[in-house]
């Protein structure tokens, strides 16, 4: 079997995941796209393991580790999503602007002007 076959499949899955992360609005669908991207990485690891055959099963071990990290990531991610839902009543990542950058220069100028007025 040509090695490019699993590698191209991994490229496709990764790019589909990138599209999902960029185009989706719901936080849970975002997390599902992350899972697709991590799966693409796993496919690469397993394919290179089958290609190199180093006798240590390095790629397979790392793939199992990545699956474990994905489980930890989805647990924390869903806890954050539930926190967002309890605080805002929605899971729309476009509307969650709690950490939006305010323009600090304008704010300090305003504060300075207020201080001089007082």
């Amino acid at each position: 079997m040509p090695l490019v076959l699993p590698l191209l499949l991994a490229v496709l899955l990764f790019c589909i995941g990138v599209y999902g992360v960029l185009a989706r609005r719901n936080a849970i669908t975002l997390l599902m796209s992350f899972e697709l991207m991590l799966n693409a990485v796993n496919l690469n690891l397993v394919a290179f393991d089958a290609w190199r055959l180093d006798g240590l099963a390095t790629g397979q071990t790392l793939a199992v580790f990545v699956i474990t990290i994905a489980a930890a990531e989805i647990g924390l991610g869903l806890a954050i999503v539930l926190l967002l839902f309890r605080g805002h009543g929605h899971v729309d990542v476009d509307a969650a602007r709690d950490l939006v950058e305010v323009d600090h220069r304008v704010e300090t100028i305003d504060r300075a002007e207020k201080g001089t007025d007082r």
């Binding site: 496709l12 990764f14 790019c15 990138v18 599209y19 960029l22």
Partner: peptide, 20 residues
Amino acid sequence: LTTGRSPFAAAVALVLALIL
């Protein structure tokens, strides 16, 4: 469920797929 910027997202994913 999909934002209005999905064509740009598709373009980014397509370019990334071509490069990779």
